[in-house]
Design a protein around this nucleic acid. Sequence first.
DNA 1: TCTGGGGTCCTAGGACCC
DNA 2: TCTGGGGTCCTAGGACCC
Length: 420
Amino acid sequence: MPATYGLIDGNSFYCSAERAFAPGLRRVPLIVLSNNDGCAIARSAEAKALGVRMGDPWHLIRHRPGMDSVHWQSSNYPLYADMSRRFYQVVAGMVPRVEPYSIDEFFLDLDLPGDLHALCTALRAEVLRVAKIPTCLGWGPTKTIAKLANHLAKRHPELGGLCDLRSPELRAAWYARLSVGEVWGIGGRTAEKLRRLGVGTIADFVALDARDARDLLTVVGARVQLELRGVSCLPLAMMAAPRQGAAVTRSFGRPVTRWAEMREAVAAFAHRAAEKLRAEGLVAGHLTVFLHTNPHNGDPWHSGQRAARIEPTADSGALIGEALRLLRSLWQPGYRYAKAGVMLNDLRPEAGQPRMLFPTRDPVRSARVMAAMDAVNARHSAGTLRPLATGLARPWAARAARLSPRYTTRLEEILVARAW
DNA sequence: TCTGGGGTCCTAGGACCC
DNA sequence: TCTGGGGTCCTAGGACCC
């Protein structure tokens, strides 16, 4: 187990990714909106200074004073995924043991010889130079402390983007000043529960009797407490754990009221989920479909969810068929549906699946058809070939009014971008 | 008019089974 | 008066994370 864990993450990662290819965005307050151009999910420092908060619905705050200087972008996940890959390559080139934690964060084993401060400074500079992503880096004896150190590096610019929490004395000083809700794994609900019991700071929480921590917050909270005390419970996992599920869920660009539209949307979600499975060589033995109306706008509420065990498969047609069968039992006309989704679970490797005694389709033929479709879509672009059930016009598709070009993965979009 | 998507883990009651 | 226990699966929801 490493003696020192590090955490490096990108500052306002999606904003930084947008700015990497659009110098004109570098000096303006910038936000990136969630799917459907809904909420602010990334804000540049300038946008934060203007009071845009994480998760603010843009349509509710855009008319506030000062907001007209804020530039917004639709989210562009292929771009961010590619920027993340570049970020990772730089990090992995300088640190031997790296755990990808999220699209913009990596845990590091910093149990390395030499001047740690100098290494971390060089790492940040190299990520900025090569991947064009500004970062912060924190480190300490456990992952939870590294996460806290990273949080401090971000919150306190005077630290120069770096924060070393290896010293117990330094940690104690910060613990006394910081709210327990700032700890990784202690969310708003838990922080409020603790506050009502007189546990306000991290120092209060660390001083809590271990049995009380466990009784109050289960094993999860007990582990957080141990980690904050400097006892490492969370190892570095360089290999990603096998995924347990694959979900495709979307808010619609406008309310869906017609069965034909809902059927097409759910078929498209099932097809996309099937593509995710095939990309990883997995099949699913369990499928869930859900739908619901808008919980925010006063529309009559209706929601439903239905699941079924299925013959393990990654075949788009088979999964669409199962999804639509479940959807039919959920559909109630007369409602304005805002969102639906398909979730696949009980995933396992396709290879080595036992042969069904009475298969309902020819598995060899299915695999050939899917492989051919995936190959065409990889060579041309996603959605070039797809099951007809997923619809042509797609009136339910999410809004994305200001999508940046996929600078790093689509040559034709760069050419369009240059013509701007 | 417009309020994200995709994960993980945990809990709880009811149905059903042996 | 006393009315089993343990397992799985289902639906639903809560909490947390990015």
